[in-house]
Design a protein around this nucleic acid. Structure first.
Length: 872
RNA sequence: GGGCGAGUAGCUCAGCUGGAAGAGCAUCCGGCUUACAUCCGGAAGGUCACAGGUUCAAGUCCUGUCUCGCCCACCA
């Protein structure tokens, strides 16, 4: 059986995935006899998700690491799962039933939830199939869903415990309300964006006076909820107003004028209208002075009965009408354009309304303290470390977390209210009767919990908590979390807090934050911008390995990484190279499967083994430190430039002369090592080739990851010399347009023993790799006067030219080379003529500088002589 | 208003603890050389954003400045 000429991923990938899954190669068992253990939990994708390039990146990096660890002898487990994604999923299903002209209210809660589950079974979890297409290797048997029975039980357990210790409470607070989703949101679910708005300055008359005060606002309609006016007590212009009463235009309500230090006298007129029910600052002031809070909004964002004649209008319309009416009474003295920041719902981008509302909250400060310490002490290590600062800034000023959502899809809050006596019962399981009055007329709180509440528990609930499972003993804390920095507050911080609180241990030892994906112009990739790369399409055209390799190779430590189709083309080309390299080796091997030779190694062998050793070391180091880009670059350049460009080309010569026995063994050995190194990055193609080899183990996914060998620096340096000779001959031939067919004699004059010996030893290879017909080496060669000359570090090459060369071009080239050398020489001279340098620089550096000077001087002389010989 | 990150070849980026500017793509020239034209060989291309400073020595360390990107913040 021979490898086909081109690697065709389609067909291969799916077949291999089935082979892996069927063979249980990704499964991990608790095994206390194995000390080396490694675990990760997936950032659970939403059930509504389709695989986009962003999660393709994250899952690829997960998979590189987990496969590497698995091969490296770790009992490595990757726990998969999915998130019920409260708002997102509910929105999708609501949209769907809208096609039947139904709202969720038409269906009722139970029926609606039944529909969502139905939807989940039918359409949800595409992403799981897509993760398989990507080649990811979690232990699928351990998959959990945040809303399944076990995790729901854990959620109730956590809720009740936090409630019992007073960390969860219910209260009326200023929250963010999305009028479209009709639910409360937490502060971090609000995204601020600068929008063009207007600043209106409105006159409020003073009671018992003919005077008015001017107040600036961007939201005139909220005046309907005004219950006071405030000024800064230190503001000389306005302090005298404190204690007086202003009259609210259009409404006529009297507003006490109070003092508030938070008012910036520089802004607007320095006077603030106070609307306690619809602004966080106003709420503060309101509660200080015990002012009434008048809510003017319905849940859907229209104005309510408190707005009098404006009742029923949406906010925007109400604003226009209020402005109109104010203008009619000439109460508006100025309107100016004023761009300002407006909060929007993260899910539906509707402007949110700050609003006073009765909700459930988690008190965070106490939970945060040990979580801050855990990161400060590197018990949880952040990589890159700069994200620590962001974490600390947020955690040290953490606000209470609004966890109740007025949705139906989610974990319903485990609180019941007695309809008879009003008692509130917080319980893990539904109570049958009221603990106070014994009534069975109980009703559960209708709200559900923020989706992130259950996500925060995922690292331990995925292992079966609150049961004391062997998995928790063995795999918790997990070793590593890989995620995006955009969910550092939503998820990472909360997991750390909950892990410490409920398990007494941090949930993970390290967090690697991936960069965010950008297109080739540096724009954030998003479907709305239309600049995304669709992984499934790439699978069709290039294969998933090409995508995986590109993503790993682009994953730098910056904030963003740019990826374009060109990069994926380049990866595809690389994999084609790998394929053909394997094809070549197998072609030469036939049915042989030689062992790796220990004796009879020549320079080429020693060179490639040494480069391999270095490459393995680099890959291990860089994977261990999550420098995926460097690891992939090292692998790429070893395979392509060390192995294919040099070792294989040299091997051809040796194989054709039929003299070398070691070469086949080395070819085969290095091929296998390369496949193993490749496997974490490009599992499909490496497995496919491995299967052709018929090697043990049956899957490369459980082969041993290569271990670091000894380097042979001398061999690498000697080979470097040889490469330089080859390159010099090629260059001079190319520059002078010596046709490929015409055999030339290269004369090499060198003082250096090593070089001439090398040329003699590798004479055949030198001719083969350069197209030279013959090479003569010696100190005193007689060089024909019309020779073209190439200067090597310690030698000169001549090609006798009987025919024509482009003298002018060659002279220009030499002149440029000469200039470059002169610049370098000048720098060296400056150093050496500087007494301070001689005195203070380390001796080794000074010696090196002297060597450099000698070398450059020689080079310069030769170049000049050469130039002269061209008649320059 | 604070904070973070980036500015190195036409493009995307390496360059770790300071000691002769690197790679890949793109470009140009030459090649179907017994695995690969998704390839091979060669070349060209850089005041390392700017200005100071520390040092014998600065993409590399320090201080400013500019440009871009992204977070956070209750100036209504």
């Amino acid at each position: 059986m021979k490898l086909p000429k081109h690697y065709d991923p389609s067909g291969v990938e799916d077949r291999l995935y089935q082979f892996w899954e069927g063979g249980g190669f990704f499964d991990a068992e608790v095994d206390n006899t194995v000390e080396k253990r490694f675990s990760m939990v997936i950032p659970p994708p939403n059930i509504t998700s389709a695989l986009h390039i962003g999660n393709a990146l994250q899952y690829t990096l997960h998979d590189v690491i987990i496969r590497y660890k698995r091969m490296d002898g770790y009992n490595a487990c990757w726990f998969p799962g999915m998130d019920h994604a409260g708002i997102a999923t509910q929105n999708v299903v609501e949209k769907k039933i809208r096609e039947e002209n139904l709202t969720r209210h038409d269906l009722g809660r139970d029926e609606f939830i039944r529909r969502v589950w139905k939807w989940k079974d039918k359409y949800g979890g595409h992403i799981k199939r897509q993760m398989k297409a990507l080649g990811t290797s979690p232990d699928w048997r351990r998959e959990r869903f945040t809303l399944d029975a076990g995790l729901s039980r854990a959620v109730r357990e956590v809720f009740v415990q936090l409630y019992e210790e007073g960390k969860i409470y219910r209260g009326e607070r200023m929250i963010n309300w999305c009028p479209r989703c009709q639910t409360a949101l937490s502060d971090i679910e609000v995204e601020h964006a600068l929008e063009e708005g207007r600043l209106y300055t409105i006159l409020y008359p003073l009671k018992d006076s003919t005077e008015s005060i001017a107040i600036a606002t961007t939201r005139p309609e909220t005046m309907l909820g005004d219950t006071a006016v405030a000024v800064n007590p230190d503001d000389q212009r306005h302090a005298h107003l404190i204690g007086e009463t202003a009259i609210l235009p259009l409404v006529g309500r009297g507003l006490p004028i109070v003092a508030a230090a938070e008012i910036d006298p520089e802004f607007g007129t320095g006077i603030l209208k106070v609307t306690p029910a619809h602004d966080p600052v106003d709420y503060e002031i309101g509660s200080r002075y015990d002012l009434p809070a008048i809510n003017i909004l319905n849940d859907d964002g229209t104005l309510n009965g408190n707005a009098g004649p404006y009742e029923g209008l949406p906010v925007a319309e109400a604003r226009a009408r209020v402005v109109e009416d104010l203008q009619a009474t000439e109460s508006i003295i100025s309107v100016q354009n004023y761009p300002h920041s407006i909060g929007h719902c993260q899910r539906c981008n509707t402007p949110v309304e700050p609003r006073l509302s009765r909700q459930w909250f988690v008190s965070m400060a106490e939970l945060a303290a040990p979580a801050i310490e855990a990161v400060r002490s590197d018990e949880v290590e952040f990589i890159p470390g700069r994200w620590k600062k962001l974490y600390f800034d947020w955690m040290e000023n953490i606000k209470d977390w609004c966890i109740s959502r007025q949705l139906w899809w989610g974990h319903q809050i485990p609180v019941w209210y007695c309809q008879d006596c009003g008692e509130m019962i917080v319980s893990r399981e539904p109570p049958s009767r009221c603990s106070k009055c014994g009534s069975d007329n109980l009703r559960q709180d209708t709200d559900v919990l923020d989706t992130w509440f259950s996500s925060a528990l995922f690292p331990f609930t995925v292992m079966g908590w609150p049961e004391q499972t062997p998995e928790l003993d063995y795999f918790y804390p997990t070793s590593l979390l890989i995620t995006g920095f955009d969910i550092i507050f939503f998820w990472v911080a909360r997991m750390i807090m909950m892990g410490i609180r409920f398990l007494g241990k941090v949930p993970f030892r390290q967090v690697y934050f991936t960069p965010l994906l950008e297109d080739e112009k540096g724009m954030k990739m998003s479907s709305s911008r239309g600049n995304i790369i669709d992984p499934l399409q790439v699978k069709e055209t290039h294969g998933m390995d090409a995508l995986r390799f590109t993503l790993a190779q682009s994953s730098c430590k910056g904030r963003g990484m740019r990826v374009s189709m060109r990069d994926i083309d380049a990866s595809r080309n690389f994999l084609n190279k790998v394929w053909n390299m394997a094809r070549f080796v197998l072609l030469k091997l036939g049915d042989e499967r030689p062992g790796s030779p220990k004796r009879g190694l020549n320079l080429d062998d020693r060179f490639i083994l040494s480069r391999l050793a270095w490459t393995i070391e680099e890959i291990r180091d860089n994977l261990d430190s999550y420098n995926f880009n460097i690891a992939s670059e090292r692998l790429y350049s070893f395979i392509w430039h060390d192995f294919c460009d040099w070792y294989l080309e040299l091997a051809k010569v040796r194989l054709s002369s039929g003299q070398d026995r070691a070469v086949k063994g080395i070819l085969y050995y290095v091929l296998k090592e390369i496949l193993k190194l490749l496997h974490p990055f490009v599992p499909f193609i490496s497995e496919e080739i491995w299967q052709f080899l018929g090697e043990e183990p049956v899957s490369i996914s459980i082969a041993n990851f290569p271990s670091v060998g000894e380097r042979d620096i001398a061999a690498e340096e000697e080979m470097e010399d040889f490469k330089q000779v080859v390159r010099a001959v090629r260059m001079i031939r190319s520059a002078l347009r010596v046709p490929e067919q015409s055999m030339v004699t290269v004369l090499m004059r060198t003082e250096r023993q090593g070089l001439s010996r090398l040329v003699e030893e590798k004479y055949e290879a030198l001719c083969a790799l350069t197209g030279a017909g013959s090479v003569r080496v010696g100190r005193d060669l007689s060089v024909p006067p019309d020779s073209a000359r190439q200067v090597l570090s310690e030698a000169e090459l001549f090609i006798p030219l009987s025919g024509l060369i482009d003298v002018a071009a060659e002279r220009a080239r030499l002149q440029r080379a000469c200039n470059r050398v002169e610049v370098d020489l000048l720098k060296v001279k400056n150093n050496l003529e500087n007494p301070a340098f001689i005195e203070r620089a380390p001796a080794a550096v000074v010696a090196k500088e002297r060597d450099k000077q000698e070398e450059l001087t020689g080079k310069k002389e030769r170049l000049e002589a050469n130039l002269a010989s061209l008649g320059g």
